[in-house]
Amino acid sequence: MKKIKQTLLTISLLLSGCAVAQADEIKAGDLVISQAWSRATPGGAKVAGGYLTIENKGTAPDRLIAVSAEIAGKAEVHEMAMDNGVMKMRLLDKGLVIDPGKTVKFAPGGYHLMLQELKGAFKQGDKVPVTLQFEKAGKVAVSLDVQGVGAQAPGDAGHSGHMDMKKMPDHSGMKM
Rank of each mutant, 00 (worst) to 15 (best):
K2L: 14
T10P: 07
T10L: 02
I11L: 15
S12C: 06
S12G: 14
L15E: 01
L15M: 08
G17I: 01
C18P: 09
C18F: 14
A21F: 01
D24K: 14
E25N: 13
G29C: 03
I33V: 12
I33C: 08
S34Y: 06
A36E: 12
A36W: 11
W37R: 05
R39S: 04
T41P: 05
G43P: 07
G43A: 02
G44N: 06
A45C: 14
A45G: 14
K46S: 08
K46F: 02
G49M: 05
E55D: 08
K57T: 11
T59V: 12
A60Q: 04
I65W: 02
I65S: 01
I65M: 09
A66T: 00
A69D: 02
I71R: 10
A72P: 00
E76R: 10
E76Y: 00
E79I: 09
M82P: 09
M89A: 10
M89I: 03
L91D: 00
L92R: 13
D93T: 09
G95N: 04
I98A: 08
P100A: 02
K105H: 11
A107V: 07
P108R: 00
P108Q: 00
Q116E: 13
Q116S: 08
L118P: 10
A121S: 09
F122W: 10
F122N: 09
F122T: 06
G125C: 06
D126G: 06
D126N: 09
V130T: 07
Q133S: 15
Q133K: 15
Q133P: 09
F134V: 12
F134Q: 09
G138C: 04
V140G: 14
V142P: 04
S143R: 11
S143G: 12
L144I: 08
G148R: 05
G150F: 02
G150A: 13
G150S: 15
G150L: 12
A153F: 02
G155M: 04
G158E: 00
G161R: 13
G161W: 05
H162L: 13
M165F: 10
M165L: 13
K166V: 11
P169K: 11
D170Q: 12
M176I: 10
M176K: 15
